[in-house]
Design a protein around this nucleic acid. Sequence first.
DNA 1: GGTGGGATTAGCT
DNA 2: GCTAATCCCACCA
Length: 204
Amino acid sequence: MFYQVKHQAHTERSRDITDLFQLPTRRLARALLGTTLVHDSPEGRTSGVIVETEAYLFRGDPACHAHKGMTKRNASMFGPPGMAYVYLIYGMYYCFNVVGSRPGVGEAVLIRAIEPREGLELMHHRRRVTEQTQLASGPGKLVMAMGIGPEHDGIPLFGKSSLRIEPRRSRPSRIASTTRIGITKGMDLPLRFYIAGSRYVSKK
DNA sequence: GGTGGGATTAGCT
DNA sequence: GCTAATCCCACCA
């Protein structure tokens, strides 16, 4: 069952979002582009298409939080793929990740930007910006716009979860890859991916 | 248009 | 004590 699902996911023929999470993390980072992040919060629904991601790998990647093993903070990175990993950064912002690989490995995909689709008014209420392209064009920004917080750390991002990822309807026209942003280790690795031409990415 | 610094806290050394 | 997967604003050009 597990391996059959895994094989289907590799060919990207399946429609089930949980199949996607079985992909190797680097491929998951690309496959998440074009999918939709949805949050049904008490204040209402917000959603957006994921347009920018970064992969963090266990092997050979010193920028990965799991690189030095499991701690209290990064524990959910070692859980099953398709769970959320939310952590505090710079003492004031949160970052939202999708756990990848297999249980116990410790890999994740940082969601860096979304193109807002539903709940634009609520997003504007949560963020103090007028520009729509500034609403969720950065990891800290999208967390604020979507109403994501530390309470979402470790929850599943599929099924009936209030915070979930829905399959893409079409493949992005072109995906660009660069080195990752805001890190001081593993700077040479081309593990950042974004939908080429999108006005909603954090940086071109 | 671009850059430099401040905010603020958990976790590691 | 210092660093960190960030953001925003003041300031200069």
